[in-house]
Design a protein around this nucleic acid. Structure first.
Lengths: 225, 225
DNA sequence: TCGTGTTCGTTAGAAGTTCTAACTCACACG
DNA sequence: CGTGTGAGTTAGAACTTCTAACGAACACGA
């Protein structure tokens, strides 16, 4: 089972402290949001004093980047597991996995999909994980039957126009071999789910009496119709 | 034209300084985001020194609240003007007005619809303006022909389930007299437009090569279909 | 087993932030 | 023409991130 750890004791200790710092950071983010994250407070709560943490993280941004990376990885794991467990690739399952994941820790969702930190630019490996998530959604959408010219009459002109456009610019998602309708559907999936989720998590539905879960459900149904 | 200003000179001066502070605040937000807003920096740029601004704003939160209020008011004015100018109430016109407004100053859009400040709670008058915006959208959606049981076959079950749900909980939007299908459509409008807009403004489409404007257009077309 | 050098954690401190307290000073009003 | 209100000042407390310099502990090679 446990392979011999080739890391030196110092490296193991270092990794453990880094993990502990991140744990406290998540705790702090969950209660006060990402903008209120304080390295000093984390250090104090760990029994260390201020600048000690700078041995483990170059600066606040690096810690946040690490948290974002972990968040993306967590979400990627969840959707991958969902795709693997369920009956192959199912967009609805993807949607529910996403919603459950988001509601489990709203701040974590908002950290990666919410308002970005002003000067922040995601490193390449993070965007790679993000597009892996997108690829999973794309797989699911490609598996859906393409009932393109079936619906009402003809699809609205802007919709087909966008599909032609996206056909010419399919540089994203590693040139996933899916028909343009699936590409468009995946994008719509992403933006619509995010629309409901982000407004719900940001509290913009409080005051309105309806249940966001039902709205989410209705959107998923409309998307997989 | 100009009515005699009944305010005292002190009040007028006070209002002018407050306006100037907000102007500098918007400038700062536009370049560095809301989280980087610094009262100190604003004071310095105005030739004042630090605590002077506390005569005008009790604290940073009050300034931000004021900015949010102004942002909401600006958006409400725009959509109201659009509804008045256009051929009555048109959801597509609403959508384009919203997008234009958002792209004109992304940070302003994200300030009101993005990740909320942790401890912040919007005062009543702000939520009132927000629901005025929603009412405008609702008017536009109610004006749309309700082709409910016409589409494909029957609407997906969760969709009608949500409409029944929303019929029972129509406490929001000041009990707007619209059929549940219009309520649902307005909600979908809001969440879908926000989904595309917020991801675009947050930069989540960079790297993918497609034009967000066309995606937005396709969503609007799908919504008004 | 015993240096030796890396790495950790410390304190000190600089530069920034919000915000309070106390003090002037000028202006508008009675 | 006094008087009081309100504006702006400086001082300073309590924070923040982050750098610099120091001591001490620890793992590793000879």
């Amino acid at each position: 089972m446990a392979e011999t750890d080739t890391r030196t004791p110092r490296e193991r200790y270092r990794a453990q402290v880094r993990a502990e710092v991140k744990e406290h950071a998540w705790e702090q983010i969950a209660t006060a949001g990402a903008s209120a994250l304080s390295l000093n407070a984390i250090a104090k709560r760990m029994g260390l004093s201020g600048p000690a943490l700078y041995r483990y993280f170059a600066n606040r941004d690096e810690l946040i980047t690490e948290l974002i990376r972990d968040a993306y990885r967590s979400l990627a794991d969840v959707v991958r597991a969902t795709a693997a467990a369920g009956s192959g690739a199912d967009p609805a399952a993807f949607a529910h996995a996403l919603r459950d994941w988001a509601l489990a820790d709203p701040h974590r969702y908002l950290l990666i999909y919410g308002t970005p930190v002003p000067g922040y630019h995601a490193p390449d490996d993070v965007t790679a994980i993000a597009s892996e998530i997108m690829a999973t959604l794309l797989d699911a959408c490609a598996a859906l039957p393409d009932d393109r010219p079936a619906p009402p009459a003809a699809p609205a002109a802007p919709v087909t126009r966008f599909e032609e456009h996206i056909e010419r610019h399919r540089g994203w998602a590693a040139d996933h071999p899916a028909p343009p309708a699936a590409l468009r559907r995946a994008l719509a999936f992403w933006t619509r789910l995010h629309g409901v989720l982000s407004l719900e998590l940001a509290g913009h539905f409080t005051g309105m009496r309806f249940d966001p879960a039902l709205l989410f459900e209705a959107e998923v149904a409309d998307l997989t119709r």
